[in-house]
Structures are given as structure tokens and as C-alpha cells.
């Protein structure tokens, strides 16, 4: 396949298209083993030089987060099964990123999206969902949740899907195996190729658990010694998109046998570590990346040797107000004296 040039014939996809960085549509830009999201080494913030540590920058995906991967697989699956079109769009419970990816990708395919979000989701994400054309339902967070009873946003989305079948198909990222397959087919192979098979440790977070389950299944098949760490915030956290272990009942994709260790981190560290990554590595890392970085640091100190990859889910731009809420000095001095 020839290298694409503007004005000339544009190839459909493939490595050479990625080299030229000219694409026919947004879908060709989605990540895969020929077009992996970049990995960058942590330098100033890595105190253990015998342990190489890389961040995989998922915010460089077309819609700015790791969720592009699952959203695209789920849309393709619904299309293949004839579930979309003729006025039928998508309804999905989301803490933001999946909804943004779904709304944008569905919009580019001609489908409408309704996103059901918990109230605690940052305002930036709610507005972004609307910018990408999603109709928004905002629900109060579970008042006193009980295991197995699910949460408000999942149940409201299911209600729309059941009561308005003619209008909505629900991908349901919490139960959809395509979410796992996305990472089995893209994230896992990308890491393996980018590290030339040298990866020894992977650090990721727990939300729907699609990422950890998919990439772990792939990488452990390649090398059973690769250790997979899941980092989760302490209970009562407000790190959007992540779940504490007590909240994982909502996800049917959680497979503890594929995780070597779950690290529980004080959620306030998500914000301070994100700030450090911004200021000392030039990485525009969001709070979940901060949390994962803190988890990785603890393992580095303990194990001293290896090649680690952290999945940095999204960037800091959606969390400016969240950051200022947790790190008070960021919100000071913003007005004229």
C-alpha cells in the first residue's frame, strides 16, 4: 500500500497510512497493533532506574481516552447484528469517557446516543457528552447501595432500552464481552509489540474491568510470568470512572484470576500524583493515571527490576474543576485582586 498524501488517493488503512498520518475517516485512526497508542518512558519521577516504566497514553486515541477501544468494538458488533439504524440509536450508562467515545463514533455513523451518567461525574464530561450530541440523563448516585442491586445509571439505561426498544440498543459495557475483546485484540498485542515482549508488569485501573481482563488474557497467554496489577481507589472516592472493589458487583467482566494483585490507594493521591506527572514529566495525566502511577511506584520500590507499562486512561483536561476541588491552591488566584 502506498503512502497517502493529501490530494492523492488515500489508502483505507494499514501501517503506511499511519506513517503518513492521513486518514479517510475517524475510524481509521482508532488504535490497533499497527497504530498503537504511544508509550513514553517515565524519567524524573522514576527513582528505581533498574525498573523501566512506561506510560501508555490512551488520551492520544481519537476521542481522548482508552474507551475508544471498547466503544468501537461494541458499535461494530451492534451494527453487525443489525441492531442500529432506522431511528434506533444507543443508550448507555457511563461515567463519561465511554459515552463520549460512543456518542462521537455513533454520530459519525449516523446514530443518536443517550447517555445516563451519575451526578458525581465532572461537569466537563457532562458538557462534552452534549457537545458530541448525546442526550443526557443525570441520576443521583446510589443512596445506600447493596451488593447485586446495581446502580442508578445502569438501571435507568436498562429501563430506556426495555421501554423504548424501537429507539435504543444498549451496548452495556459492564457485561459486553466485546469490551474485553477490544483489549484482547488491541491493547494486549500493542503492549507486547511495543515492548518487544519484554514487558514484566502491567498496571491498570478497575472500572468495567474490560481493560484488565482483555489485556491480561492476551499477555498471560504470551508469557505467564507477566504480572498484572489493578489499582483501585479507597472507598468513598470520587475518581470518575473507577470502582472500588466493593462496587465491582456491577461489572460482570471482573475476573480476579487474571489479576495478580489489587492495590488499594488513598484516592487523594490520584490528584497529587496526576499533578506531579503534569509538572515533572510533561504528561497531561488525569486522576486515574495518577492513581495508577502511585500503585506502580509501590511495586517498583518493592521489586526493583522489570519493565512496567501503565495504562493512562485519559488526560487532565476534563478534570480541571475536580483537581481544583482536591488541590485547593489550583483554584486560588484566578480572579483579579
Amino acid at each position: 500500500m502506498s503512502t497517502a498524501t493529501v490530494g492523492g488517493p488515500i489508502p483505507n488503512s494499514g501501517t503506511s497510512a499511519h506513517l503518513a498520518r492521513v486518514y479517510n475517516d475517524i475510524f481509521e485512526m482508532l488504535p490497533n497493533v499497527d497504530n498503537p497508542s504511544p508509550m513514553v518512558r517515565i524519567n524524573r519521577l522514576n527513582p528505581v532506574k533498574s525498573f523501566q516504566l512506561f506510560a501508555k497514553l490512551e488520551w492520544l486515541n481519537p476521542l481522548g481516552s482508552v474507551k475508544d477501544r471498547a466503544a468501537w468494538q461494541m458499535i461494530r458488533d451492534l451494527e453487525e447484528r443489525g441492531e442500529l439504524g432506522d431511528g434506533r440509536g444507543i443508550v448507555e450508562p457511563t461515567s463519561g469517557n465511554t459515552g463520549i467515545s460512543l456518542a462521537a463514533l455513533a454520530g459519525a455513523r449516523g446514530y443518536h446516543t443517550r447517555a445516563v451518567v451519575p451526578n458525581k461525574v465532572p461537569k466537563e464530561k457532562k458538557i462534552l457528552l452534549k457537545i458530541f450530541g448525546a442526550e443526557l440523563d443525570v441520576v443521583n448516585d446510589a443512596l445506600c447501595p447493596a451488593p447485586g442491586l446495581g446502580d442508578g445509571s445502569i438501571n435507568l439505561a436498562k429501563t430506556h432500552a426495555k421501554a423504548s426498544r424501537d429507539k435504543y440498543a444498549m451496548p452495556n459495557q459492564y457485561e459486553n464481552q466485546k469490551n474485553v475483546e477490544a483489549h484482547l485484540q488491541t491493547t494486549g498485542p500493542e503492549i507486547w509489540k511495543q515492548t518487544e515482549g519484554k514487558v514484566t508488569h502491567v498496571f491498570t485501573s478497575l472500572g468495567t474491568c474490560g481493560t484488565v481482563t482483555g489485556l491480561s488474557r492476551y499477555l498471560k497467554e504470551k508469557d505467564a510470568n507477566i504480572r498484572i496489577y489493578a489499582v483501585q481507589p479507597t472507598e468513598g472516592h470520587d475518581v470518575p470512572g473507577l470502582r472500588n472493589i466493593s462496587q465491582l458487583a456491577a461489572s460482570k467482566l471482573f475476573d480476579p484470576s487474571l489479576i495478580d494483585e489489587i492495590l488499594e490507594i488513598d484516592y487523594e493521591l490520584a490528584y497529587t500524583r496526576a499533578l506531579e506527572l503534569c509538572q515533572k514529566e510533561g504528561l497531561m495525566a488525569g486522576p486515574s493515571s495518577g492513581l495508577i502511577f502511585e500503585g506502580a511506584m509501590r511495586i517498583l520500590e518493592r521489586e526493583r527490576k522489570g519493565c512496567g507499562v501503565m495504562i493512562f486512561c485519559d488526560n487532565i483536561f476534563k478534570y480541571a474543576s475536580n483537581m481544583a476541588h482536591h488541590l485547593k491552591h489550583l483554584g486560588e488566584g484566578l480572579d483579579p485582586r
Binding site: 440523563d137 441520576v139 443521583n140 443512596l143 442508578g152 438501571n155 435507568l156 429501563t159 430506556h160 426495555k162 421501554a163 423504548s164
Partner: peptide
């Protein structure tokens, strides 16, 4: 309900 969005979405 405490949140009547649910009733409106489907009852």
C-alpha cells in the same frame, strides 16, 4: 420513587 426519571423512562 425518589427519582421519578425512572418512572418516566419506563413503568
Amino acid at each position: 420513587d425518589v427519582d421519578t426519571q425512572a418512572y418516566e423512562a419506563g413503568h
